[in-house]
Amino acid sequence: MLPEFHLKFKTLLATLSSVLVLVTPTAGFADEINIYSARNEALIKPILDKFTEKTDIKVNLVTGKADALISRMQSEGQFSPVDVLVTTDAGRLARAKSMGLTQIIPNEVSLSSVNATLVDPDRHWTALTKRARPIMYAKDRVDPATLSTMEALTDAQWKGRICIRSSSNIYNQSMTAALIEQLGEQATEQWAKGLVANFARPPAGGDRDQIRAVAAGQCDIAVANTYYLAGMRESQDKATRDVANSVAVFWPNQDDRGVHINISGIAIAKHAKNLAQAEALISFMLSEEAQQWYAQTNGEYPVVDAVAWSDTLKAMGTFKHESIPLQTVGEKNADALKLMDRAGWK
């Protein structure tokens, strides 16, 4: 009696689950990989398609906010279907690791081409691209000789001349977290207060909006990620290109710690079922082809040194960047946000 029931119950559950899950056609692929990505679809799908083309591994993708995806992994627990997590900053990877949601990337995947500060010391995650956050200035109103460091942006000469986005934004949070690590909490808080005092307007909009505000004359200096400027310089729209070309990049702190950078990165999920495919994906993402694609398409810097930059990136010049281990940036994120709250950085 029982075995029969057992069988029926199994079939019932199996049918139920297959009815519940919206199944997309899977014909023709022997292997699959399931990805949760905080990188939005437009910036990852094309390269994943190339991966499928090359390896015959089908990619299933969900994109969303990193912390929400991490929450989903958490509540799905051991049955979570996800194999790899892709994020656009180191902090979230460190968070996923500390929650026990990731595992060591096997030695079969070579991470030696990636700078050690961009890889988790326990090999729970690795960077895939670098994103730099320099100063951008109006070519016609600012003499680059007056610029030097991020700290110098608190000088009185910049009063009412600086545009930067809200402290809710992760790029500002990790920039501040990195400063806490390197300058200490007190000095960083002084810096944040000084910066806020020099704001041209209350923070609003994204990085591109800050660049536009500089071009339009609302402020003279913006702090923004380079790939936004790169994207604007390569825009199909002439007006946008003109805006981007009236603004130039200044690399701050080149004589000391270097400019702030963050990464986009990848980790293997603790309960990954397609481990070999996950390994193949990471190796592919670190290959010259994928690294070059990111540099060309999204103006991000490759993490593998040998890979050539796009012309737009070359035109912005080379730079020295911070060398603190990125995971500390993740750990200090909450402190950074509280500090910015206290400094009145909206």
Binding site: N40, A42, V62, T63, G64, K65, R72, D237
Partner: peptide, 25 residues
């Protein structure tokens, strides 16, 4: 965004992802 099954995309997701990436056009 958070709850959808793999490979399920909606117009809102698409519009939002592009807009948030400041690709309004």
């Amino acid at each position: 965004l958070v709850l959808r099954p793999f490979n399920v995309n909606t117009l809102a997701v698409k519009a939002y992802e592009l807009a948030m990436d400041e690709r309004l056009q």
